[in-house]
Amino acid sequence: MNRNIAAMLCLSAFGLSACGKGADSIVSRSEAEALQSGEAVTVTATTAPAGAYVEPASTPVTVTTQTQSAGAMLTGGGQSVAALDTTSAEEKAAATAPATGGGRLGTTVASLGDATEGGFWIKTPLVSAPAKGRVVNPANGKSVNLDLQPLSGGGAGSQISLAAMQTLGVSITDLPEVEVWQN
């Protein structure tokens, strides 16, 4: 019996959090269905600290939701990857110019950084001060000249610009292992 009650409470918490209101908010089934369908709906929700009792709100709140595909969220609210890439033709030419020399700093796993931040850059724990360098994708041999920036907050991986990922021939959802070189 107690096991059944615990399972029902757990499922209720998951159900409420799936409505986007959080595990400590309460909405009716019709309100939840309206929210999920994207309609504008009047919702009376109660949010309370765990274990506290709160009287229901006397004034309803109107909530409008928007639905967005995962692809639209990934590409910046409906913008295409090409629309987010604001680098000029001159910048792209400079980034792909052959480069030699310098010292190899190491390898790192790179993920897409802030897609709205233009230019060619990598934020990495492999440098402690800004510098010029390049990144090589050993999987296909492509390389890109870019700005090396220290990664604030530490971490083991690196963040790379959208333009640099495209030049390296890497999908924005990939986590490639790249070589980092300093000029």
Rank of each mutant, 00 (worst) to 15 (best):
residue 116 T to L: 13
residue 129 A to F: 00
residue 126 L to I: 03
residue 39 E to P: 00
residue 110 A to L: 04
residue 92 K to E: 05
residue 58 S to E: 14
residue 68 Q to T: 15
residue 150 P to G: 03
residue 113 G to Y: 03
residue 25 S to G: 09
residue 140 N to F: 09
residue 8 M to V: 10
residue 74 L to K: 10
residue 125 P to M: 06
residue 144 V to T: 13
residue 136 V to I: 13
residue 57 A to V: 08
residue 66 Q to W: 04
residue 31 E to N: 01
residue 168 L to H: 04
residue 168 L to G: 06
residue 102 G to T: 02
residue 125 P to G: 00
residue 27 V to Y: 02
residue 69 S to H: 00
residue 48 A to M: 10
residue 124 T to L: 06
residue 97 A to T: 14
residue 156 A to R: 07
residue 35 L to V: 05
residue 9 L to E: 10
residue 152 S to K: 11
residue 135 V to L: 03
residue 161 S to F: 01
residue 60 P to Q: 07
residue 134 R to I: 00
residue 123 K to Q: 14
residue 125 P to C: 00
residue 70 A to L: 14
residue 170 V to F: 01
residue 175 L to K: 14
residue 134 R to G: 03
residue 82 A to L: 11
residue 154 G to D: 02
residue 72 A to I: 04
residue 122 I to R: 04
residue 117 E to V: 10
residue 14 F to C: 08
residue 153 G to M: 05
residue 115 A to H: 06
residue 69 S to L: 04
residue 71 G to W: 07
residue 167 T to K: 07
residue 92 K to F: 13
residue 79 Q to V: 14
residue 157 G to R: 09
residue 5 I to R: 15
residue 59 T to I: 15
residue 27 V to R: 00
residue 114 D to K: 08
residue 112 L to R: 09
residue 127 V to H: 00
residue 109 V to H: 06
residue 53 Y to K: 10
residue 170 V to R: 01
residue 131 A to R: 04
residue 115 A to P: 02
residue 176 P to Q: 08
residue 43 V to Y: 01
